[in-house]
Design a protein around this nucleic acid. Structure first.
Length: 583
RNA sequence: GCCUCUGUGGCGCAGUGGUAGCGCAACUGUCUUGUAAACAGUAGGUCAUCGGUUCAAAUCCGAUCGGAGGCUCCA
């Protein structure tokens, strides 16, 4: 959940959540209240209704809210003793509030806020009265588990937004509309990048059209080139793995239900799994050869398509799929090398994210939860070492981060890079993880300077994370208008009439020879129409070729969104495009 | 998986009880084009699927499948 600054806007949103709760209470007597906090851009309230709430009721609730706001009720704080507070909520038949009171630490003041005859347990603060809440809108209904646990009852959550002025509300709603226009699922269809075919192929498995695959290819080539430059070696480990390996590594215990069902080789009595992660495979590769301390650090990288049986409700366009391609890497090193290897991985990640124009990300240090046990491997000493190593590496590299207990992998803590999609949803892209556990479980060894066997530490690292998700977020970031180097079609040739086709082909061949991705649009359509469609397909450069160009041996360059750049020689155009490609 | 919403030709949409319509795309023809949409014509849909209510269902009800927004999960 996003932390929200405690300011005037926070109070407005918090108070509007109360206003909504009061309206709901008047319209639906007997409704039970859970929690209703302000969030980024708005607020919500979790409620338990006797009957399911229909979306069309939101308008009625809004209307009632306006009426209550119109009464301009003063909002008054009241404090009660614990026993009194508890008895009060019990008398109101508000079990969630009673539970919240029981959770409050001893000695804490228990406060309530009253507006008219409606009252709610709340820490506050709030606006002085209901009259100043004017510019709000209820957005949608969702289910949400009480206390965020799927073991608990599902409550009804109503989301709303509120702003100090009418203009700000309008602007916000406009932003939401504009965000929908850059939705990667919509753009993927419009630009012909990828499709889903749930009936034929299955849910959550994207199929890439030629332009989408060109993007994938460009992205992969680029990362491969960077990784090679940073001393990584690329490996390949296939798609099927014996199930036993995951029992050894600990993945089976934690993720059996997120793996696709096993394929059974009856004759050999062996179960195979579609590979859901690479670590055990890379460690098996490591174990296939003897290693001296001189070999370390050893960096195995792979672009590997993994299969995870994500629950249907969790699938989301390209950002959450069942077939995902990770640019995964496992760095085998000594404890002494952790910090320098982390720094190197960090440098690589920053270089790549910068190339893609990603500046808006934050770093989460994902730690083991408060309560040991659960999925986490129990070895306090190793966790302490791994956590210290990660923290000091982050500090040494002056990385700003926030800590998130309970977000670690079962085998160790991680530094995750999070970025947002068009709708403000946060997605993990890059990650660096420290693992003292799996190498020991899988028997990884190297020989140290004194000829003794040692267990290496493994850093898990992904740069773009998964190609599919990264591409999804990238499409939204650029609104489908990729920079020249990434654009699946970089240059489109538009010969004006049939007699210019031969010249256009000649120009096209020279551009292709220079390594550019060129498309010929020689359809029998008006030039204006072909320009329009190229603009909408977000092709960065258009070359118009007509009588004047043939006569003067030129090409007429049009840059998308910028318009006509005029005629120039092909040599000048090639130099210009080379400049675009490197920019 | 859970809650709410949703499913009409390739795409975007209209049609709330009397057996489907528009725009774009496609196809054919005419036009041979100088920087964001030439003109005319043609073809294309068992209204997601299955079942029910009704004289009659795209329309009402139920189930299933898919999609969306959340929740949970995310090696």
């Amino acid at each position: 959940m996003n932390e929200v600054a405690h300011d005037a806007l926070y109070d407005l949103r918090h108070s509007t959540a109360h206003l909504m709760a009061q309206a709901v209470g008047e319209l639906f007597p007997g409704v039970k209240y859970a929690i209703g906090p302000p969030i980024e851009d708005g607020f919500y309230y979790d409620l338990e209704f006797k009957e399911p709430l229909k979306e069309e009721e939101l308008a009625r609730i809004e209307e009632k809210m306006r009426e209550i706001a119109g009464r301009n009720l003063p909002i008054v704080r009241e404090e009660k003793e614990r026993a009194e507070a508890r008895a009060f909520e019990e008398a109101l038949d508000q079990p969630y509030k009673v539970a919240l009171i029981d959770d409050l630490p001893e000695g804490e003041v228990i406060s309530f806020y009253r507006q008219g005859d409606w009252i709610d347990l709340c820490r506050g603060p709030h606006l002085p009265s209901t009259g100043s809440m004017k510019h709000f809108k209820l957005l949608h209904i969702a289910g949400a588990y009480w206390r965020g646990s799927e073991k608990n009852k599902m409550l009804t959550r109503i989301y709303g937004t509120v702003w100090p002025t009418k203009q700000e509300l309008y602007d916000y709603l406009q932003r939401l509309e504009e965000a929908k226009l850059r939705d990667h699922r919509k753009l993927g269809k419009e630009l012909g990048l990828f499709v889903f075919a749930p009936e034929a192929i299955g849910s959550g498995i994207p199929l890439f059209l030629p332009k989408g695959e060109m993007l994938r290819h460009t992205m992969e080539s680029y990362v491969r080139e960077v990784q090679t430059r940073y001393g990584y070696q690329h490996v390949w480990t296939g798609h099927l793995v014996r199930e036993d390996l995951y029992k050894k590594s600990g993945h089976y215990e934690n993720y059996a239900d997120v793996m696709f069902p096993p394929m059974r080789d009856e004759e050999a009595g062996i179960n195979y799994r579609l590979k859901p992660m690479n670590c055990p495979s890379h460690m098996t590769l490591f174990n296939a050869q003897y290693h001296s301390y001189r070999d370390l650090p050893l960096r195995y990288a792979e672009f590997a398509t993994l299969y995870r049986y994500e629950k249907t409700g969790e699938l989301n366009g390209l950002t959450r799929v069942r077939a995902l391609t990770q640019d995964d890497c496992h760095i085998f090193c000594t404890e002494d090398q952790i910090e320098s290897e982390f720094a190197l991985a960090l440098k690589l990640i920053r270089e790549v994210l910068t190339r893609y124009g990603f500046t808006d990300y934050r770093v989460r240090l994902s730690l083991r939860g408060e309560e040991p046990g659960g999925k986490y491997v129990a070895d306090d000493e190793k966790w302490r070492k791994a956590t210290d190593a990660l923290r000091s590496a982050l500090d040494a590299n002056a990385v700003e981060y926030f800590e998130a207990p309970g977000e670690a992998a079962f085998y160790g803590p991680k530094a995750d890079f999070l970025t947002k999609d068009a709708l403000g949803r946060e997605w993990q892209i890059s990650t660096i993880q420290v693992d003292f556990i799996q190498p020991a479980r899988l028997g990884c060894k190297y020989i140290d300077a004194e000829s003794n066997e040692q267990t290496p530490v493994v850093l898990h690292r992904a740069v773009t994370g998964t190609t599919e998700r990264f591409l999804g977020v990238l499409i939204e970031q650029y609104a489908g208008a990729f920079p020249f180097w990434l654009a699946p079609e970089q240059i489109v040739l538009i010969p004006i009439a049939e007699r210019h086709y031969a010249y256009a082909n000649e120009v096209g061949e020279q551009l292709k020879a220079a390594g550019f991705r060129v498309k010929m649009d020689d359809r029998n359509e008006k030039m204006g129409k072909r320009i329009r469609e190229s603009e909408m397909q977000k092709i960065p450069v258009m070359l118009i070729l007509g009588d004047k160009d043939i006569e003067n041996s030129t090409v007429s360059v049009r840059r998308r969104t910028e318009g006509d750049l005029g005629a120039m020689s092909l040599e000048a155009a090639l130099a210009l495009f080379a400049h675009y490609r490197d920019a």
